[in-house]
């Protein structure tokens, strides 16, 4: 049941990414190119997502557990450490080079696209390298 729910949520998430334009590298470049011809569309993606997600997190937080009775698995870290800053900077450079972030990388595998497959394979390799280097870690 929980796996089926996760599948449907992935499906909704993927549909949202496709409809919003997040799966198109040119859309991402247009948003990040504030010194060229700037496409502010992604502000609307974030704005829409934040509105609904914030309501969801407040509701879940008040209840203190999921509707199925499971404890909420929330990140426990609070400190802004060098790992956070370095990781975000490295991710940002990769995002700016290819115009693809993790979820759209997976969604784009649903198309028969060689560049999408190359990017996703490299991304998974990068995650595997981290997994080998750091072992198991609990984060968001």
């Amino acid at each position: 049941m929980k796996n089926l729910i996760a599948f449907v949520i992935g499906l909704i998430f993927g549909a949202g990414l496709l409809i919003s334009g997040m799966t198109q590298p040119e859309k991402i470049f247009g948003f990040l190119d504030i010194f060229g011809r700037w496409d502010p569309s992604l502000i609307f993606v974030m704005g829409g997502a934040l509105m609904v997600a914030a309501i969801g997190f407040v509701a879940a937080g008040r209840r203190g557990k999921s509707l199925l009775g499971d404890p909420l698995s929330l990140p426990s870290k609070n400190e802004i450490d060098p790992r956070l800053l370095a990781g975000a900077a490295i991710f940002g450079v990769g995002w700016g080079l290819a115009g693809v972030c993790p979820a759209p990388a997976i969604v784009n595998l649903g198309f028969a696209s060689a560049p999408a497959a190359i990017f996703a394979a490299a991304m998974l390799a990068g995650m595997a390298v981290y997994g080998v280097a750091q072992g198991r870690s609990a984060d968001q």
Partner: peptide, 9 residues
């Protein structure tokens, strides 16, 4: 870019 995105995130 893929390696950077995977490792960085």
């Amino acid at each position: 870019a893929g390696l950077l995105v995977g490792f960085g995130t």
